[in-house]
């Protein structure tokens, strides 16, 4: 069947941008193989008729809405499995992000389907969809073909949000009894912001720090350098150091953090994992300092410095100041 089912995540009454990207992508690809794009939403009262209908703007013709807990994967698997069983969708598409991975994988088990994650391109080929996934540190691209239901989990930001000007989507309420295990996990608190509320999205210059800074106090080196650049500059971080409590969550770049594209992004002690790269790869100029010549970040930096940041950063800060004063 050529129809594509997507999952749309929401939080506090707003639809998730990556999910909207999945809807746009799903609508465009479904059209190429003669199908339609539908969406599933699961949540409470903030999923109003009006909000669900707006998915029509991105190309969804139908929205399946179920009452259920938000922010957990397993209830969504129950809903999607039921919708697919009753409507015979050929593909399930997710926009990346943590829940998409969990739902897509669980759904693959439930429906005995094939699943590909970190997909950057979906193509129509002979009336079917195929998915391309970069592997081995983005050095190769693997192409997936599906037998039966195909589950495609996008890499974050891979699918562009496109308003198609389509009319209101039809909203269909789904009644179901959740699987017993789906109700055995419950959200205690959601979306807690840890650390100060800093703004990195508007900065022209970002000095980003990672585990290579050694400890929370190591961030002083990054802050000093950002201050030397002055003007519109800020300090950003990797998830590894945010999880460790060294730096605020609001400063995190990457898959579960912010997406930035400053004029200058300077990484200090960052390995360049895919989940970090996806949040900063569109920066205009990328400079990296890392003591490991094999660090993946050097694969996508414009200027790479192989060396110890503890030696380089203080001198660089002085030199930037001197240059500014001259």
């Amino acid at each position: 069947m050529p129809d594509v089912l997507t999952y749309v995540l929401h939080y506090e009454g707003a639809l998730n941008k990556n999910s909207l990207g999945a809807v746009s992508e799903g609508a465009a690809r479904a059209a190429e193989i003669g199908g339609q794009c539908h969406a599933v939403v699961v949540g409470g009262g903030d999923l109003t008729e009006e909000l669900c209908q707006t998915l029509g703007n991105y190309g969804a013709t139908k929205v399946f809405r179920a009452k259920g807990p938000e922010g957990l994967a397993q209830p969504v698997i129950d809903v999607m499995a039921k919708v697919i069983d009753e409507n015979g969708h050929g593909y399930a598409l997710f926009g990346g992000g943590l829940l998409g991975f969990e739902i897509g994988a669980g759904l693959a088990a439930r429906q005995k389907a094939g699943v590909t994650m970190e997909v950057t391109t979906v193509r129509a080929e002979d009336g079917k969809l195929v998915a391309e996934r970069p592997i081995l540190g983005d050095s190769k691209i693997s192409i997936s073909h599906y037998q039966g239901l195909g589950i495609i989990i996008g890499r974050i930001n891979a699918f562009e949000v496109k308003a198609t000007g389509g009319g209101a989507a039809e909203v269909v309420d789904v009644e179901l009894e959740y699987s017993p295990w789906s109700t055995r996990a419950s959200m205690v608190t959601r979306g807690e912001q840890r650390g100060a509320d800093v703004d990195i999205e508007g900065a022209d210059v970002l000095v980003a720090g990672g585990r290579g800074l050694g400890k929370a106090e190591g961030f002083q080196l990054a802050e000093d350098l950002a201050a030397a650049f002055g003007g519109n500059s800020a300090v950003a971080a990797t998830r590894a150091v945010v999880d460790a409590g060294w730096y605020p969550y609001a400063a995190q770049i990457g898959q579960t953090g912010k997406t930035v594209s400053p004029k200058l992004y300077l990484a200090a002690g960052i390995s360049g994992a895919i989940q970090h790269k996806v949040g900063m790869q569109s920066s205009e100029n990328i400079v990296a300092i890392n003591k490991d010549a094999n660090a993946p970040i050097f694969e996508f930096s414009d200027l790479g410095i192989v060396g110890d940041l503890n030696k380089i950063l203080p001198k660089l800060t002085e030199a930037v100041k001197a240059k500014k004063d001259s």
């Binding site: 050095s139 010549a293 060396g307």
Partner: peptide
């Protein structure tokens, strides 16, 4: 398996960046 992976191809080549090995930090800076 329900998914067949194959046809491994190389991604579009990206121009390699410039690399500096830090020997004399003053010079590097």
């Amino acid at each position: 398996s329900q998914v067949q992976c194959g046809d491994f191809k190389a991604p579009p080549a990206k121009a390699a960046g410039q690399i500096i090995e830090d020997e004399d930090t003053g010079e590097t800076v």
